[in-house]
Structure formats: C-alpha cells, structure tokens
Write a protein that binds this DNA or RNA. Structure first.
Length: 533
RNA sequence: GGUGCCAUCGUCUAAUGGUUAGGACAGCGGGUUUUCAUCCCGUAAACGGGGGUUCGAUUCCCCCUGGCACUACCA
C-alpha cells in the first residue's frame, strides 16, 4: 500500500510551492489507490504562529485536496471549528510526539550512532568562522564525540545545556531518487547533524525520519531543497536499522530571476491568490503544470483535479525548476472562469427546458435555442441572476433598483467574468450619462468627422423614433437599413451612435446600448449629442 | 569555499539516434456586419559550448560553462 504525506511547517500560510508538493503527493497516492496524510512539522518553538494550522487546513480544504489522515476540522465549513486528528498512527502534529523522538534518539545514543554535544553557540560560531576563513567547509569538528561517559554525566548533572548530534558515518551514502535517479554523497562531507535541540525538541531531520517510519510512509515527495539533506536521513534510517522510503525530489518553483520563489518578489501564499479572485481550479491546474505535464504529445492543458488524478505520473515530473509565471496563471483562470460559467448556464438551460438545443457558436461561446419564448425569458433571467451573484457586492445600491440592470449585465458578461470588482466602471454610464467632448463622436480612421457625425446621429435618431418593437434584432435591422440608406460604411453610422449613447471610448456595441437604455433614453442621448455639435 | 542538482523558443513545455524540432502563455500582424475586449487566422522566437560514440546527434557518454539549492540548536 502506497502512502505519501505532506509535511509543512505551520508558518502562517500555505506557500504555492507547498501547494504543488501537496498536490503531487495527493495525486501520486490517489493514482495508485494509496493513502495520503497531512503531518504538521511544528518543532520550531520560536516560529510558532497562532492560527497557522487552522489556516493551512482551511486552504487545503478550499483547493479541494483531501487527506486520509492528519489534523482536520470537526466541521470543515466552520472557521472556528475544533481541530481533531484522524488516522491510526497519530498524533500527526510533531509537537505532540516529543516523547517518541526522545525514546528513539536514546536508542541511537546507546548504539553509538548519536552523541551529546555541549559546545556553546560561541564556540561553534568561532569554529565556523575560522573554517570559512581557511576556505574549508564549515563543519562540526566532533569535539564532543568521544567525551568519556563520566564527563558527560558530570556536565548533565551540572545542568549544562546540550544537543544530541547524529554521528554521520564515513563512506558513501547513496539512494535512488524517483525523479533524479541515482544520487550519492560522501559521508565525510556531511556535518554531524543536530537531532535534538537544547530545548528538547527534535530537529526536522530526526522528527521527519522517525515519523515517516512509524507512519509507514512509502514515498517521500518533497521539494528539491531537501536533496542535500537526504543522505543524513538515509544515514538515520541505517542507524535505526529501518528500511528507508522511496524519495522523489521535486523541482523548485522559481522567481522571474530563477531564484527560489520568495515572498520578496511577489505573492507566494495561496491565500493571496484566493483573495485576488483566482479559482481553485485554475490554481491547481496551473501549479500542476509547473514541473509536470502529461507528455506523450498530449496538448490538452486544461485539467480538472479529477482529470489530473488520472493523468498524473511521477516519472513525467521534471528535474529543472519552473518560473512561477503569473500571465499563464491568468490565462488558466480565464479559461476556467468561462468553462465553469458555461457549465452553470448549461445546467440552468437544461433544467428550464430539457429539449434546449445548445450549440457552440465559437470557442466556449454557446447559443441556447429554446422552443418556447417563455423558456428563453426564464433562461435570460437565470443568466442575469448568476451574473448578479458574481458582482452584486461591487454594485452601488441605486443600480440594484434600476430595471435596466439585468440587461446591462448581459451586455458586459465577459467583463464581469474577467474582473467582477470592476463592474461599476463598465455599467455606470447606463445609469448616469457620461461627460464627453464632441471629439469623441468623431473617428478619423473610420472617416467620421463632425459633419458626418451629425448626419449619422440625426439619421439614426430619425429611424429609431419610428421603431416600436424595441429589441436587439429590430434595432440591428433598423440601423443596418440606415447604413444602407445613407450609403456609408457601418462604422460611419455606428461609431458616433455608440459614442453618443455611452459617452465612452470603449463600451458594448450600439445595438446592445440602445436595447438596455430603452427608446426614450436612447433618443434623449442622441439628441444631446446632436446639440453638442 | 565545499557538496549536490539542473540545462529545448522570453516563459511553461512536447517529441526524437535521421522531424520543416510541435503546442500553450506573452509579443507582433491581420480578420471577426463600429471601438476595447473576446474569438479566429497568421507570424517571429529554442536544442549553452567543446570533445567523443555513431553512417548520422538536440537526443547516449565525458569535459567546460552557466544557473540554482544546501551548507543553523529553520524547516
């Protein structure tokens, strides 16, 4: 039975690199029908951050990565829910396991594989300084390795602080990495690692190895920054007489300058991206493709978590680091927004009318044909409601009471999907006419000067006045007839009308504008424009 | 300094002992019954260098170079 684990230290937030590690661990376990555990590595008392664990659990829950074992919230939907532990080999929080580490490390001491070290920080600092000055690798000089037992006992009795160090064996330490193949280190180049700190807490190295062993982890999948310390872990497994798990060291996530992804150069917390409005699907999809892809010429890039579970394979994971490129994230996000919104519309359409005909007019843009105009009306309403739900919090109250709103939202659907919080900028002109200069009504490239604009505005107004059935289709037909009547290019008529109705350089098209504004307001705005010239 | 890892378009990447080295993002150009956007089409853009092995290397091996990580009583 395969079992992986994600073992973050609770630093306050979930790092996007951590998210990817968690994702790969999750996918690897899922793929093989194994188990996935969450373990909290909180052995550094100085770095305790209140609320960090809760945050971590919430974020993992939000993105949809579930685990079989580890700390969970009794009620995942409740922010303040109590944290309980799930699984047979807990506790899964290292600070609750200190007795286990002490017991295990004693075995190492008894076997001569670890020793107490009484060296002070000052001595250590001085030693390293000297070594560096002499162009030597800074390493512990094993001063306390062969301290006589009597002296050790004396020092302990005198209350001297000590740490417990691992005695790294001379000789080759090698292992096979699932991603990098055979890797080996010379034991002589590896420092005698501290296993137990003077505060009695274990270091990462000890806790990690002991826990992975007792939690029966079969595959350790973690970031590449751990590669250099893996031989220490191998040595530890050997010292304990345990079989070590398989290792897979993931390529790093990088800043634009190819250094390890860091806070200084942008947002690294998953919650930062949540706050910015990125979808979980997009974040997962993007992060999954940083350092992995399905290969074999597969060109699909949009994958849901379920699809990833099927497609994932650890031997397709890359060796070299990947730059965390926001532009691509934006693209994934956009794709997912459209996909999800379309899925919602489809569901709504089928609920209203099971016989609805849905056809893809162009990529990810569908037309819904209902047999009954009543159904069409219902669908229209439902569509507006969905849009409203996305952006209502960003709308001024007076807009909500205006009957123009539903139509207005439909005309800026794409903008809402893109950036809901900018919605006000896109529709306020419907409610409050914009101030604009008469030059806006002209367009050199389209051949619209002020006199042409006047003709266009007057003619358009004239024809629209006669129109009684005011809808998108009739508006379009009418104005295209006006174009024909005047013998001008589309833009020569349509540009000034659009500008007059919106008062903006960029806006939805004229037909939609007129449709939303209604006959009275449309004619009024055209009149205003004519008078302006 | 030491140890280790890595190396295909600007970025994410595919494929291959013989290919016009493919896709996506970003860029640029054009089109989409008016503008921005969307969408569509097109375009430019890569095998770090040197040795081998081979009939033939981007692909396999070695060296160099470059980049990165680690080098704490942090993880």
């Amino acid at each position: 039975m395969i079992k992986t684990r994600f073992a973050p230290s609770p630093t306050g937030y979930l790092h996007v690199g951590g998210l990817r590690t968690a994702l790969y661990c999750y996918l690897f376990a899922k793929k093989s029908g194994g188990k996935f555990a969450l373990r909290i590595e909180d052995t550094d008392q100085e770095r305790f951050v209140p609320g960090a664990l809760e945050n971590l659990i919430d974020t993992l829950h939000w993105v949809g990565i579930t685990y079989d074992e580890g700390p969970i919230k009794k009620d995942p939907t409740d922010k303040n829910s109590e944290i309980i532990e799930k699984g047979p080999v807990g506790p899964y929080i290292q600070s609750k396991r200190t007795a286990i580490y002490k017991e295990q490390v004693q075995k190492l001491i008894d076997a001569g594989q670890a020793y107490r070290c009484f060296c002070t920080k000052e001595r250590l600092d001085e030693m390293r300084e000297r070594q560096t000055a002499n162009k030597q690798a800074p390493m512990y000089d094993r001063k306390c390795l062969d301290l006589p037992q009597s002296e050790v006992e004396e020092k302990i009795k005198a209350g001297e602080k000590f740490v417990i160090r691992q005695k790294i064996p001379y000789g080759t330490l090698k292992f096979k990495d699932l991603i990098r193949g055979n890797v080996q280190f010379d034991g002589k180049t590896i420092d005698d690692q501290v296993l137990i700190k003077s505060d009695g807490f274990p270091t990462y190295h000890l806790a990690n190895v002991v826990d992975d062993h007792f939690m029966e982890i079969t595959h350790v999948i973690r970031g590449e920054e751990w590669l250099p310390s893996t031989p220490k872990h191998i040595a530890l497994y050997q010292a304990f007489g345990w079989q070590h798990p398989e290792f897979a060291h993931l390529p790093l996530l990088l800043n634009a300058d190819r250094s390890k992804l860091s806070k200084r150069q942008g947002d690294v917390a998953v919650e930062d991206y949540i706050k910015k409005g990125y979808l979980r699907e997009a974040i997962i999809n993007f992060v999954a493709f940083l350092g992995w892809n399905p290969g074999s010429g597969e060109e699909q890039e949009i994958f849901s978590l379920e699809e990833l579970e099927k497609a994932f394979s650890i031997d397709k994971v890359h060796k070299s680091g990947a730059i965390f490129n926001l532009e691509k994230l934006d693209w994934f996000n956009w794709r997912w927004k459209k996909r999800l919104f379309n899925a919602e519309l489809e569901k709504a359409a089928k609920e209203i009318d099971p016989a609805v005909v849905i056809s893809e007019a162009r990529k990810e843009q569908f037309t819904y044909t209902f047999s009954d105009p009543e159904n069409e009306e219902k669908f229209f309403k439902s569509r507006c409601e969905k849009l409203l739900k996305i952006c209502s919090e960003y709308l001024p109250k007076e807009f909500l009471n205006d009957e123009k709103l539903t139509k207005a939202l439909i005309t800026v659907e794409e903008k809402i999907l893109r950036e809901p919080k900018d919605i006000k900028d896109h529709i306020s002109f419907y409610f409050t006419p914009q101030e604009y200069s008469k030059e806006l009504l002209t367009h050199v490239k389209m051949g619209v000067d002020l006199s042409q604009a006047t003709i266009s505005l007057k003619s358009g107004k004239e024809d629209l006045e006669k129109l009684s059935d005011w809808n998108l289709k009739t508006l379009q037909d009418t104005l295209m007839q006006t174009v024909a009547r005047l013998g001008v290019k589309n833009g020569q008529l349509l540009w000034p009308l659009r500008a007059a109705l919106s008062g903006l350089e960029f806006s939805p098209g004229v037909f939609e504008l007129a449709w939303v504004l209604g006959k009275e307001e449309t004619l009024k705005r055209l009149e205003t424009a004519v008078n302006k010239i």
